[in-house]
Structure formats: structure tokens, C-alpha cells
Design a binder for these strands. Structure first.
Lengths: 218, 218, 218, 218
DNA sequence: AATGAATGAGTATTCATTCAT
DNA sequence: CATGAATGAATACTCATTCAT
């Protein structure tokens, strides 16, 4: 009857785990909110703590220092985006070039749009820490994934794979950056997506799709 | 006799002006040096003053506050770049589309490469102040200039002018940003330049240059 | 059946006692280890708790606060040393002056050397709490014990007893402090011991015991 | 007539110098006061600043950090004491051993007693920073000075000079420490002084009463 | 009793800005 | 105009202590 105690077999670990992850979540969410609402300048540990509903000390129980907090913010998002792109890639193994590019681009954009708020926050946070490694590493992972996907396509001669992968990925990232930095409007976003798809078709001039790409461009 | 003072019509103002601009120049230069050498975190008013050879107080005689100093840094460069682009544009009035694009792109890149050190510094400074207006405004001016240049071309139907101008400018800016942020290597840079030129040719599919573009792409 | 509880007569108290003292022991030992390894600055309650294998909360079940923990550390050692000296004193009742001094000094040094690690730790801890009472009190006890030992000697006229006792004890303590603070080398230590024995004989120069003292010294 | 401006030839450098050293003086004095009044625990940069009558920022214009402030406190005093001892030493060149020892000991004690308040403060501060180098270095300087003074005496065979110097200096320091740490009373102090002088006479074997003692001492 | 997450007052330190000289 | 000492609000981070579980 006074059951709860007996029903759950492993009550010890889970609460801790949950409490901790709740706290972390709350802190990160608070950081995002503040970044969006007040910009980088407003992002002080005290304010993050206060908004998260926890004390400063608690924040420091989970993050060694402010930079690490921001790092985690960046990391989380980049990992998410890369993961989404990787799934899209593996779904397209053996498909034709156009589909591949479209799929990756769409997955990439979707992952970013879906967490638009975080992306904006990350972009702001990004500046304070001066560690582009995080971005570079994510960039590399994305490029590698894309490269191996392209490798599964009989359409592409191996000479171009690397170049195309590099271009694709840098355009994807560049676009995202532009969107959230300069606040381009949706329309532009869509246009950019098409452009990305088209541009890469240039690298396969024998493909019939080139004509289509060009004609749909305007 | 003790002539000099009376010979020149405006003796009081000019020297001051000169002194002032010397000071401003020295301060801005110091800021650039520090930004490059020590990053955003090292950019303190005291340090800028010391490196400039003036006292902090003097710095505040010419800049209302730190942000204004950075603003001026950004402004100066953006104005320079836009001015260069504008000259290129006016030189191409009535030329054909390909030449126009090439000219603007080249002028734009040249202006940035020429002051590469400043661009790097500005990119770092950029982060601390959160005023994208400056960039947006420069972006707009560049786009307008390009648009009116395009308008002088009989090749382009007015429907596409806006789109192409926008694309061109955003690609230019995006590229510059990428170069200085991710440190892309020269080779890539060159590739990007070609890409820019080519991509825009897509918008004029009937033009013979498309084929060339494609064939030079690889 | 579920016997254990009922079989032993005082089951509740003893286990606790034992557990308690185990905990206390573990905590104090942890404090010593940390003091030696990381210095005063590293001595935080959390760290002591963690190293002791218990939780912070548990630590606070046995010590009202951090200072009390350090107090206990100091107390324990001082009590030990004084106790050793007292035993030596009572063993020397009625002996001659030289033997008395030698015995106390040796007992004192032995007790400190034996727990050299603790002494070092205590010295570091000593600084944070500002309660010289502890030391003063131990000093007084030591002096009193020594005084009454000397009083049992027919050799000494009462005039000098207090002075000699005071000197002896302060030299003992001073020496220990010097050894652990300045890390004097063994040779010096030995020299000091001899000096202590000799110096005190100075106060009774005409006394025949001087010779004895000197000869027993090595 | 409106003279002041013209009377003083070098008005620029001095005011600065004076202002600066005044500030430093005020800050150090404030630190001493606080240490004496409130102990090590009360010594916070903010409080020191407040009591000195300056702002925290000013404090940090002269001391890189809290530890450096304390360092300077310690340094200043040690330098003073060593300097006093050195003067005493040079005054005794060629004198006899007894006078030498007496002179150094007296100079040493005088220098400490004279600044008793500082010494107390330093003793408290001493503990927070864990840099015995300062003391060791002062100790070494004192010993070297004493050694060379002894070397000027024809009375002493070179074998003993080092030992005596070392003993003398370590007793001096030990005594001072004891006085200010355990708060020994004046009477004791005097006694100690005599003891120091006497002890070292042991090393002067011409004294009849001490032959035995001396021979066992080494 | 034991736990360890949460607390938050307290501390060192920085840096944009002012102002008396 | 120039100076640079002085300012002090703001910030990151610590750690002794509590308390719900």
C-alpha cells in the first residue's frame, strides 16, 4: 500500500541524475534566454543563475567556469546539427548527387531552423569565447560525413568529391551564419537553399539536371 | 615680420585638426595592433592609450567612450571598402554583366585584402559591440550601388537586378567573413572568387559565358 | 531470532561510538593528508570530506564547523606530546637535574618526531585559526609539569626552578617549531638538543651536576 | 611674487612620486592596522583599501595582487632589520667576540622592538602567503653578514665561525618569533638576550668554566 | 545517521571613466 | 589640451554551511 517506496527498485541513482540534469538544463536554458534578451553583455554568471532559479554556487557545481558553460551550449547545438546531417547522409547512400545534396542541405537547415532560438544565442555567445576549434571540428565532421556519402555515388569521379563536399559544407555553414547574423528574411533563406543545390550541380556538367537547375533558378 | 602667424589665413584650426587626427590615428592604430596581438579580451582603454603613446584621458578627448572607438574602427573600414566598390561600379557603367560582377568582386576583395590586418581586428572588435546596424548599413549601400550599376546594363531585365545584386553582395561579404574567420587558405579564396563570378552568370542562361563557367569550374 | 540487536547488552551506544570515532579519525587523517599535500589553501571542508570517504554533511555531524576540526587536530597532537613529557617527568622524580632535562627533552622530541607528519600539518593549520590559546595552554601544562619535576630535585634552589622550567619548555617548543618550519637539517637538530641540555646547566654553574650533564649529553 | 610656481624647479616628477609613495604607505599602514585589529581573516583587499582611504582600484595600481601586498610588508621589515644588523656588524669590525655578539643581538632586537606593531602584523600575514623564501633569504643575508664580521676577529679560529654565526642568527630569529607569537613578557625578553650572549661565549674556550661544555659541543 | 545538491554571502580582481593638476 | 592617479561598480568564482531526502 504505502507503495511508492517499494515499487521503484532503483530510487537512489535516478533522482540524483534527474536533479542534476534538470539543473544543467535549467542553467543552459537561462543562458539562452539571457543571450537572446540581453546580448552577450548581459550574460553574467549571477544573472544566469538567478534566471535559472538556482544559486551561483549551483551553477559552478556543474560548470567549471563561464566559458565551459558557453562551450557546452555551442557543443550541444553543433552535435545536434551534425547528427541530423549524418542521418540524412546515411539515408542517401547510393542515391544520385542531386538528391544527396538536397537531403543534406535540408537536414542541415531543418536542424538549425528547428532550434533557431538556440542558434541565435550561440551566435552571440560564440564571440566571447575565442575558440573556433569547436566550429572547425564540427565543420570537419560534417565534411567527412558528406565526403563518404558522395563516395557511395557512382556519378562522381573521385577527383571532385573532396572539393564538392568542402564547398557544400562551407556554404551550409556560411548560410546559417548569414541568416542568424544578418537576420536575412525567410525568402532569402529559401533562395539560398536552391542556390546551394544548383551550384553543386555545376560540378557535374554532363548531368541533365543542370539545365533544370538553371531554368528553375529564376 | 613675425610673419608666419599672419600669413596663413586659418592657422589656429589646421594645426589642431592635424594634431587631433594624428591622435585619433594613433589610437585607432593602437587598437588594431592590440586586437590582433591580444584579442578582444586585451582591448582595454588603458592599454590602447598606452600603446598609442597618449594618456587615457587624451583618448577620452577624442572618443566619447570605448564603444565609439570601436565603432569608428568598423566604420572606417566599411566606408573604405564601400568606396572602393563604388568606384569600380562607376567605372563599369554600361559594361556587360560579367565584367561588372568581376570588377566589383575584385575591387571588394582588393580593398579587404589590402587592409587584411584591419579586417581581422575589426572582426574581433565586431563581437564586443553589438551593433549590426553598421554592417547592415554598409551592406545596403553596397547593394544599392551594385543595383544601379546593373541598371545601366541593357543585358539585364529589371526583374533580376535586385536579386542578383543582393546575392552578389551577400556572397562578397560572406566570403570575406569566412576568409578572416575560418582562415581559409589562398587557394580556396581564389576558388571562391571564381565561383562568385560564375554563379551569377547562371542568372543569364542564354549568355554564352555559362559554358565557359562550367568548364573552368573544375 | 533477528537476534543481534538483543544479544549484546549495549548495542546501540558502542557501535555508534566506534563508528563515530572511525569517522572522526578518517576525517582528521584526511585533513592531515590534505594539509601536507596542498597546504592551508587546499583545506576545504568538501575536500576533506571527499578524501575521508564521507559526505560533507557527515563531517558536520561530528564537527560543529571547520575551525573545530582544526582545533581538534591541534589539540590531539599537543595532548599527546604533553602526555609523553609528563610520563618522562614522573619517571624522573628525584633524579638529578641533568637526567631530568635530558629525559624531558628526549621525550618531547621523540613524541614530535614520531608524528612528524602531523606536526607539519598542524603547523600549517595553525595559521588559519587564530587561537594561540591552544598552544599557550599546552605550553603552560608542560611548564607546570616540568616545574614540579624540578621541585622534586634537592639540587635546585627554588629560585631558579621557574626560570629554568620556562626556558627549557620554550626552547623545546621553539626548536620543534624551527625544525618543522625552516626544515633544519638533522645535524642541526642534534646540535640543538645538546645545546638545550647544556644551556640549562649554565644556570647552575657551580653545581657539580654540570659535569654529569655534559657527560650524559652524548 | 606669485612665487610658489617658480620657486620649485622640478614640480612635475616629485608630486607624482610623492602621491604614489603616499598611497603605498597608506595602504601598507592600513594593512598593518587591520592585521593587528582583526587578524588575518579580516585582511581583505576591500577593507584595506577602505581603511587606507583609497579605492580598491587604487590599491591594485600599486600591488599586483593581495599576496604581493603582504610580500611587500614582509620584505620591508626584513630589509630594515637586516640593514640594522649589518650596520652593527660593520661597526664591530675587529672588535672582540663578546662585543660583536652583543652588538648584533642588540641591533637586531632594537630594530624589531622599534617596529613591534609591524612585526606583529607581519607575523600574522606571514601565514597566509606560503613563501618562506623571504624569511630564508633574510636569514641567509644575516648569517653572511655575521660570518664576515666574525672573520674580522683574530680571536676566532675559522673552524667555528660558520657554526657560531648560524646559531646566533637562528637564535635571534627564533627569539623574535617566540616573542611576537607567544607574547612573552619583557622580562623574558631580556633574559633571552642575556642567554644569547652567554651561549655564544661557549664558543670561546679561553673561559675556564666552560672547557668541558665546549669540548662536547662539537 | 548519511548524503550531497543547493545556498549565497563574501573575495579578489578588472576596467571604463572622471577630474584635479 | 594632456595627464594618469583615483574611482568603484561590476564580475567571476569560492567555500562553509544547511537541509530535504
Amino acid at each position: 500500500m504505502n507503495s511508492r517506496k517499494w515499487d521503484t527498485p532503483q530510487p537512489r541513482k535516478l533522482p540524483r541524475q534527474t536533479r542534476a540534469s534538470n539543473t544543467i538544463e535549467a542553467v543552459l536554458e537561462a543562458a539562452v534566454q539571457i543571450l537572446i534578451a540581453e546580448g552577450t553583455r548581459g550574460l553574467t554568471t549571477t544573472r544566469v543563475a538567478k534566471r535559472s532559479g538556482f544559486a551561483v554556487g549551483t551553477l559552478y557545481q556543474y560548470f567549471a567556469n563561464k566559458d565551459e558553460l558557453i562551450d557546452m551550449l555551442v557543443h550541444r547545438h553543433l552535435n545536434h546539427v551534425v547528427a541530423c546531417a549524418q542521418i540524412a547522409c546515411s539515408d542517401q547512400n547510393g542515391a544520385n548527387l542531386g538528391d544527396m545534396i538536397t537531403a543534406v542541405a535540408d537536414a542541415f537547415f531543418a536542424a538549425n531552423i528547428e532550434k533557431a532560438r538556440d542558434v541565435r544565442a550561440i551566435h552571440l555567445a560564440w564571440m566571447r569565447i575565442e575558440r573556433s576549434e569547436l566550429f572547425c571540428e564540427a565543420f570537419a565532421r560534417l565534411r567527412d560525413t558528406t565526403t563518404s556519402m558522395f563516395a557511395s555515388s557512382p556519378q562522381l569521379d573521385s577527383v571532385h568529391i573532396d572539393t564538392i563536399a568542402h564547398k557544400l559544407v562551407s556554404m551550409l555553414i556560411g548560410t546559417i551564419r548569414a541568416i542568424f547574423e544578418q537576420g536575412m528574411d525567410e525568402a532569402l533563406t529559401t533562395g539560398t537553399r536552391e542556390q546551394i543545390v544548383n551550384v553543386h550541380c555545376l560540378y557535374h556538367p554532363t548531368d541533365a539536371s543542370l539545365d533544370t537547375a538553371v531554368s528553375t533558378a529564376h
